[in-house]
Simulated assay, not measured.
Amino acid sequence: MTTNWDKIIREFLDNLERQEVQLLTWGIVDGGFSEDEIEELAEDFLNTCEIDEDVWDFLDQILERKLLFELNLRGDRLFRTRMAEAVRLFARLRQLFPNNNWQTSPTLVADYRLQIRPRIYPNRYITPEAVIQQLEADKLLTPIQQKAVTAILLSHDRGEVQLADFQLRATRRMLQDLNSTKSRGMIVCAGTGTGKTLSFYLPALAHIAALLKKDEHWSKGLAIYPRNELLKDQFSETYQEARRLDAVLKAVPMKKFHRQA
C-alpha cells in the first residue's frame, strides 16, 4: 500500500502547531521543540498511525520541505514549524535607519493576534484531457499551445497532473486576456501549496510557446518577485516546466526556452 506522505505530514504539523500556538497566542515567540521532544512527538505520532518508518527519516522529509526549521540555540538543537518561525520573524521586525543598530531599533509590530484554522486544500480532480477539452471548447488553444499544455500536464518524468477548479479558471481567464487587445490585470488567490504557480505559468508558457520563432530574440515574459529566495525557488520550478516543452518545440522550427542573465 502506498503511503500518502503529504497527508501524514500535514497531520503531524497540525499536532505541532496546536502545541506551539499555546505560547504564540501569549506573545512568546522564541520557544521551540528540543531534539528529544520532537523525536518523541514524531515517534508517538507514527506509532498512533501504525506507520513503520524511522523517526528521523520522517523528520528529515519535513525538514527538506522547509515545513520544519532546525535552529541552533547556544549549542542546542531547537525545532519550530514554518508557522511558528514566521510569527517570530513578523513579531521581531524592526525599523532600521542609517547609523542605527538594528538590535536596539524600534519594533515595527506593536502587538499581534494569532488564530489558526485547519488546512484546506482544493480538490485536484480535473484531468489533462478535460482541461484540453474545455480550453478547445472556448477556442483558446492553437495546435502548438494544445501540445504545450499537454506536455506540462502529462510529462514522462512527473506523470499526470490534475488541476483544481481555480487553476482551470485562471488558465482560461489568462488565455482569454492574452488573446485580447485590451490590457487587464488578474490576481490569483489561494492558500500556500495549493498550486498558484502552475495556475499562471501554465497559460503563460503555452502562450509563449506559440510566440517562439527561429531567429527572433525578444523578451516574451517578465516575472517580478519581492524576495530573492522566492525568486530562486520559483525560477527552478518554472525552468523545469519549460524543459517539458523542449520535445514539443523541437518538432517545429523554434528554439528552446532560455533564461537571460
Score class of each variant (00 low, 15 high):
M1E: 07
N4A: 12
W5K: 11
I8Y: 05
I9L: 03
E11H: 07
E11N: 10
L13P: 04
L13G: 06
N15Q: 12
N15G: 09
Q19Y: 04
Q19F: 04
E20N: 11
Q22Y: 03
L23M: 09
L24R: 06
T25S: 10
T25N: 04
G27I: 13
G27F: 10
G27V: 13
E35T: 06
E35Q: 07
D36C: 01
E37L: 11
E40A: 12
E43H: 15
D44T: 10
D44W: 10
F45C: 09
F45S: 06
L46T: 07
N47T: 08
N47R: 15
E53A: 07
E53G: 01
W56V: 09
D57L: 06
F58V: 10
L59K: 11
D60Q: 08
Q61G: 07
I62M: 02
L63Y: 07
E64M: 11
L67E: 14
L68T: 00
E70M: 05
E70H: 01
L71D: 13
N72T: 05
L73I: 07
R77E: 06
R80I: 07
R80C: 10
E85I: 04
R88I: 02
L89E: 14
Q95N: 07
F97N: 12
N100F: 05
N101S: 06
N101W: 00
Q103A: 13
T104P: 00
T107K: 13
Y112I: 08
R113L: 13
Q115W: 02
Q115I: 10
I116W: 01
P118R: 12
I120H: 14
I126H: 15
V131F: 11
V131S: 12
Q133S: 15
E136L: 03
A137Q: 14
K139G: 01
P143D: 10
P143C: 05
I144V: 13
Q145Y: 02
H156W: 02
R158Q: 15
R158H: 11
G159T: 00
V161S: 04
L163S: 03
A164R: 03
A164T: 07
D165N: 12
F166H: 11
R172C: 11
R173K: 08
M174I: 15
N179E: 03
K182Y: 02
S183I: 07
S183M: 08
M186Y: 04
C189M: 06
T192G: 01
G193H: 12
T194G: 05
T194C: 14
T194P: 02
G195T: 07
G195K: 09
S199C: 03
L202Q: 02
A204H: 05
A204Y: 05
H207N: 12
I208D: 05
A209G: 14
E216R: 14
H217T: 09
W218V: 13
K220Q: 13
K220Y: 01
E229G: 11
E229F: 08
L231P: 02
K232R: 09
K232S: 09
S236F: 04
E237T: 15
E237W: 03
Q240C: 01
A242F: 00
A242S: 10
A251L: 11
K256S: 14
F257Y: 06
F257M: 03
H258K: 13
H258T: 08
